[in-house]
Design a protein around this nucleic acid. Structure first.
Lengths: 147, 147
DNA sequence: CAATTTCCCATGATATACCATATACATGTT
DNA sequence: AACATGTATATGGTATATCATGGGAAATTG
């Protein structure tokens, strides 16, 4: 999956890039979005992905566990279903847009089973950061003819 | 799923958010609410969820099941059915409202199989607390999210 | 019979579904 | 290679349906 930038209109509507939609659509007609815990971006995935995470938590802790309580609150309290309209758009909420500082342009970044939605400037910085990080951790990948 | 704030009128009536209702309604026309054991909020779920909890504990071989048994009894003693009116509202009792310190505004927080109802200010604090906690413990969650 | 509770209808606000246009992309043709 | 044509996507706007909420009528209770 690649990185695609789409416009966000005054109502907060964005087209989910066609490539993303194709993967999602026959499985279900809606996706689930929530604020990233550690980054200023929106995360999206299929509902089944969240369900799986939830049942993982349920089986690893008991009904009265405080950890479980916190996690389910965090995940399900923040996540929301976003159905598509007939042209393949979703209507993002104020809360999500604000968290990701998105106003008129949204960048979709594929992450395998999930994807992220960024403000263009923030994504640019984040990508640079990730690249720098990757190079630092894998010196062998660095071009040698540089010098 | 999702967190939604609705008004509580003078009679103690609140609309159950539409998204919540959709999941509940065809299963049964009423939900079950009770005071949270550990937090200043109301918890709600389907009756079948409580039934499942009870039978899970009956068949459990867990060493601590006696403690859980007691907790379950506490919940059952407190729980009460709340039917909807024709517009999808429930009438919360004085006891529940007082426990959650709710007067004019009620915040619904999704938790997957159940949900909580909070006083807005209390929820704000609680959410901040949970987020901070989750960030601290993030390393253990990370592997699951990554994939 | 008074007081409380339950039920139902009316309204305004909001979100959703639908339709129309514009843009980009790919395909095939001259 | 350039153009034209067709298809699929993206974007903008409007009508419609749904929901939250307030008020009041009917039913119930003490």
């Amino acid at each position: 999956m690649d990185t695609i930038s789409n416009k966000v209109d005054a109502k907060g509507r964005v087209s989910l890039p066609a490539d993303y939609r194709a993967i999602v659509k026959d499985l279900s007609s809606e996706i689930v979005c929530y604020r990233s815990l550690s980054l200023p971006c929106i995360e999206g995935c299929l509902e089944e992905t969240l369900d799986k995470l939830a049942s993982d938590i349920e089986t690893s802790t008991d009904f009265f566990s405080e950890t479980q309580d916190n996690l389910t609150n965090l995940i399900f309290g923040d996540a929301k279903r976003f159905p598509f309209d007939s042209t393949g758009r979703i209507l993002l909420s104020e809360k999500l847009l604000k968290h990701a500082q998105i106003t008129t342009e949204a960048v979709f970044v594929g992450k395998g089973r999930k994807f992220q939605i960024w403000n263009p400037e923030n994504w640019e910085k984040e990508e640079a950061r990730i690249r720098a990080e990757a190079l630092k951790n894998r010196p062998s990948l660095q071009p040698k003819e540089e010098r």
